[in-house]
Simulated scan of single mutants.
Amino acid sequence: MEKYIGCVMEIIYLGRDNRITQRCIEIREVQDRIIKAFCHQRRAPRVFRIENILAMQPVDSQVS
């Protein structure tokens, strides 16, 4: 997971409330089973549990 630090990724995430959301995040730090990232949807730093990430793919920087 550390290889994605600094990358913008699109994730499908299962939140605390069991809702599934799609987010675009920039990974800033990986610790244990936690990802600290900037969430473009919320425009704020967020923390994500790796086990709650259902799918993940890099965002193509060529596409806007």
Rank of each mutant, 00 (worst) to 15 (best):
I50A: 03
E2N: 11
S61A: 05
R23L: 13
E29M: 07
M56A: 09
I5T: 04
D60K: 03
H40V: 05
I20K: 11
L54A: 08
C24F: 13
I34M: 07
Y13K: 09
Q22K: 15
R28F: 02
C24M: 08
R33A: 06
N52Q: 12
R28W: 00
Q62G: 09
I11Q: 03
V59R: 15
R33G: 07
V63W: 05
N18W: 09
R33T: 15
Q57G: 10
A37C: 06
S64A: 13
L14H: 07
K3N: 11
V47E: 11
I50P: 01
F38R: 02
E29Y: 03
L54I: 11
H40F: 10
C39F: 07
L14A: 10
M56Q: 12
Y13W: 15
I34S: 03
V47P: 01
I11T: 06
N52P: 10
M1A: 01
I5K: 06
F48V: 02
P58K: 15
D60A: 07
V63Q: 08
Y4P: 01
D17V: 09
E2D: 11
E2A: 06
E51C: 10
I34G: 02
I53L: 12
I5E: 01
Q22G: 11
I34A: 00
N52Y: 10
Q62D: 12
Q41C: 14
I25E: 06
N18A: 13
P45W: 01
I34Y: 06
S61M: 03
R49P: 01
F38T: 01
G6E: 06
Q62S: 08
Y4D: 10
Q41V: 15
M9V: 14
A44W: 04
I53N: 05
R46G: 11
I53Y: 09
E29T: 03
I12E: 15
C39G: 12
E51T: 13
M1R: 00
Q57F: 02
V8Y: 05
S64V: 12
Q41R: 09
I20V: 13
G15T: 08
E2H: 06
S64E: 10
A37H: 02
I12T: 06
I12A: 01
Y13L: 07
Q22W: 14
E26D: 07
R16Q: 14
A44K: 02
I53T: 13
I53R: 10
C7G: 00
K36A: 06
M56W: 04
I25P: 03
Q57I: 03
C24P: 00
F48G: 01
R46C: 09
K3P: 14
R43I: 04
Q31K: 05
R28E: 14
C39K: 06
